[in-house]
Amino acid sequence: MKYLCLVWCEEGKFEALSNEEREQLDRDSMGYDQELARSGHMIATEALQSPANSVVVRVRHSEISVTDGPFAEAKEQLAGFILIEARDLNEAIRVAAGIPLAKLGSIEVRPVHNFG
C-alpha cells in the first residue's frame, strides 16, 4: 500500500528555532530520508516553500482565476510530503512517527487509492 505523509507545521514554530536547532532538524530530516530510501519505504519526498509563494488556481466558466492561497490563514501549513510504501496503516504510522518534523508539527497519513 502507498501512503502520503503530509507534513503540517506552523511557520512561526519553525522560525522560532535557533540556527543550531534548525541545522540539527535539517540534518535529522536528511538522515531519515536516507534511512527510508535504504529500507525501501521511500517513494518520493519534497520540502515545500512557504505558502506566501503559492497561488490558487480555479477554472470557472472556462475562465482562469488566480488568487493568493486562501489557506494562508490556516494555523498549520503544508511544509512537505513523503510518499511511502508500507505494509499497512500501522506501519505507515510508525514511519510517520519517525519523521523529525513530527516533534514540531503534525503528520497526516493518507492512504493512496488503489484502483487495482
Binding site: 499497512d88 504510522i93 492512504p111
Partner: peptide
C-alpha cells in the same frame, strides 16, 4: 493481518483499528 484487513473483517474504519493498536 494488516490493519486494513482487520478493519474490513470487523466492519470498522481502519483509523479506529490503527489507533487501538497504537
Amino acid at each position: 493481518l494488516t490493519t486494513e484487513e482487520i478493519a474490513h473483517a470487523f466492519l470498522i474504519p481502519p483509523p479506529t483499528v490503527a489507533q487501538r493498536i497504537v
